[in-house]
Design a protein around this nucleic acid. Structure first.
Lengths: 221, 221
DNA sequence: TAAGTCCTTACGGATTTCCGTAATCGCAGG
DNA sequence: CCTGCGATTACGGAAATCCGTAAGGACTTA
């Protein structure tokens, strides 16, 4: 089993929870923690330079801002930077994100080794994930493996952006202007109409207001 | 210090984190945990009947649904039901919610003893909170004490009803019809327009969709 | 009684939404 | 090569939204 692990997670209680689980569930003793990305990076670099490198990083994705100004503000940057000095480090992401496409992106672009969703069954999943990653496996969460069979509506980034803008009260014309300004395609009003119609169907919404209400209730926004 | 505590929190890692903190930070040994509201309630009742009652409940507000069908689905119901059998039980709510009006509502209507926000400094806050509640204090989180108490919009029942209907996708004409059928006055489209305009002003909303999004975010709906 | 205020209602018009139809383009398969 | 499919774009029209003006009724206050 891994002998030296770093946990990067800004929410203290979650941080302590992770430590407790991998300590008691897997018998790992040498566990270090960080509440800030930059701090995690420095700990990593120092351990590497001292020839006592970490073997596993368990990190959150989002780190809230506070008084300590950070260079890195997300787990993604942290992983990228750590991989530069220690390319083969095993990485498990532990995050709220449950959208399959988002999670898949992490595996594809960031080449992480495992993902655990914050949730009701995170203890067992985390233990399984660490064990799997130690064996050399790539451990996908149930949210992804079961996604194909579920009737969950999959939203891509464009959909999320649309819903976000609408919930901020922008009209479709304003959204079009914004997209053109940001050079994001597609950016025609009729395409946006089409995408919205699809969302209406998917969520069985009667109009934009209803749609935003539904998505807010589902916590997708 | 408290000697027997129940932690109700569906996210396992957070659950473990809370236990670790109050165990190591406060030296409390007899800590029980529940991932479901109903389970927490049953543990509570049994302990009370066995004359070994809990002295403190630390509970989350939202509990995700899963395969186990629950009677109680939120921490609010849990607290209400537990208070019926043990009115003086101390209650600390530990939740994501950071909106002052929502949190204040918990103190006023649910008469809880303390509140801790899931966040970066939750460990210290939780320890302080438990200590304060043990002394008999009511422990408000910094989010509330530091909040300015001015920008509160007061909604009457008619406003709430309007917002509710709109968020369910009804058009104003449909709302008018519904009001007339229910013999509720006022019920003209232009009055509804007026009321809505006022809500737009109050919440600085640009249109209906924006308004519903804001109200949903504020947790008023 | 008269004036002022607030609530309700009516109406019109500029704008936006919602939903059709249809044309164009890139692209994979036969 | 061509055919079909999906994504994008354009356009139009009925309905709905948003916001202004205005009028009538209920109430208080002088």
């Amino acid at each position: 089993m891994f002998t030296k692990v770093l946990v990067a997670e800004d929410y203290e209680i979650a941080n302590q929870g992770i430590i407790k689980v991998i300590e008691e569930g897997l018998g790992i003793q040498n566990i270090h923690e960080s509440k800030y990305c930059d701090d995690a990076y420095l700990k990593f670099r120092k351990a590497f330079q001292d020839n006592e490198p970490f073997e596993l990083l368990i990190t959150d994705l989002s780190f809230k801002e506070d008084h300590k100004v950070q260079i890195r503000t997300s787990g993604i940057e942290l992983v990228q930077d750590i991989r530069k000095i220690q390319p083969n480090i095993k990485v498990i992401v532990y995050s709220q994100e449950s959208r399959p496409d988002k999670i898949n992106m992490l595996f594809q672009k960031l080449d992480i080794n495992g993902y655990v969703c914050k949730g009701q069954h995170a203890v067992k999943e985390l233990v399984n994930c660490v064990q799997g990653v130690f064996r050399g496996d790539t451990v996908l969460p149930p949210e992804v493996t079961e996604a194909s069979t579920d009737n969950i509506v999959n939203l891509d980034d464009f959909d999320i952006m649309l819903l976000e803008e609408l919930s901020q009260g922008l009209t479709k014309k304003e959204i079009v202007q914004k997209l053109k300004k940001l050079k994001i395609t597609p950016n025609s009003e009729s395409t946006i109409d089409k995408k919205l119609s699809k969302l209406f169907d998917d969520f069985k919404a009667k109009n934009t207001t209803h749609l935003v209400a539904i998505v807010k209730d589902l916590g997708l926004l």
